[in-house]
Design a protein around this nucleic acid. Sequence first.
DNA 1: GTCTATAACCTGATAGAC
DNA 2: GTCTATCAGGTTATAGAC
Lengths: 207, 207
Amino acid sequence: MEKKAKETGVPAEMSTEEKILEAARVVFTQKGYAATRTRDIAEEAGINLALLNYYFRSKEKLFHQVMAENMQRFFGIIAPIITDVKTSLNTKIGLIAEAYINQLNQNPDLPIFVLSEIRNNPAQFKSRIPIDTLIADASFFTQLRERRPDVHPVQFLINILGMSVFAFVAKPVFLAANVVDEAAFQAMMEERKRLIPVWVEAMLNTQ
Amino acid sequence: MEKKAKETGVPAEMSTEEKILEAARVVFTQKGYAATRTRDIAEEAGINLALLNYYFRSKEKLFHQVMAENMQRFFGIIAPIITDVKTSLNTKIGLIAEAYINQLNQNPDLPIFVLSEIRNNPAQFKSRIPIDTLIADASFFTQLRERRPDVHPVQFLINILGMSVFAFVAKPVFLAANVVDEAAFQAMMEERKRLIPVWVEAMLNTQ
DNA sequence: GTCTATAACCTGATAGAC
DNA sequence: GTCTATCAGGTTATAGAC
């Protein structure tokens, strides 16, 4: 009956600083920087608006912290997999698909957040992650070039990420269109972990 | 030398109303609703802020117009292709890939705009486009089910769209990371028009 | 550390002159 | 139709009491 208890979405046992940061993760990742009001974060955290500035100085500083975490969540997945010289190409593909599907099942808003953010501000992304050297060194690309010297390795990377990540980007469309429900989507994503390596292997064998 | 001439991005010969609408297309599609200020649109259009409200009443009304156009641009592509009963499955796949790659080459910001917008407001999307009946009727899905009754047809739709659309969503990442430059990206997209039907055909043949 | 009150600023929208 | 000036409301950030 009492509906005023706590409308907050974060656990009560957290420290105030953690409550704010956790609330900021949720709201910023879901709505983006511009559409988020500091009041939304304070409410979600169940604390007073002034405390946000007390702990994090400004909306922008708090956002940068969340953004850095999200970048790490999104790109940190793939780096150790593609640079591992001990695994086969097919193993890498399976690991990439599985890692992204697991991660995005828990953080479905991550792709749109990260990709919007990079488009809005490519420069800061460039300085933050040394992707160019990462890719030059990655055994994943060497393996792709050996297997299919006639096709740019990035073409296959786009396909693998497209098949893993795009499903989650388009998830709201399929749900809104009643094409699948939440349970069916989950089942399909589980199935994809197995299917993506099979599909990509078939691609690699085409003439 | 004179740098004050006109900073506007829209042609001078347009009517004022068209200048505002065209500027709104550019800015809203690139930055989204919340991050766009009506002043940005006015500046891009090379007109006064008051004229925006004179012609379009409010920021929200102007946005709705741009959004409706963008939805049509994004989903209008696929509808006639997947419902055409006279074309083969493989032909449809090639047409979808080609149509999206051509459209997104001209409007690279379209996917993130549309997908963010639907995630922010699934309800209005649901009422706007009768996707459920579209999909139930589409011969594309019948053809997929006949070909691979063991896999949900949406799995293949995700793959085709993922391979066509995701490339553009991730484009800023690849550019910022110096993996490819603009010219190389263009060339790769051209190559994809040919490769996607080949790749999907190989997927459909897997055991 | 936490709160209330408020300052300082920004943004959408309009009034009114031309 | 188009402009300048300004209002009204909302948002970030801070001052100051507790």
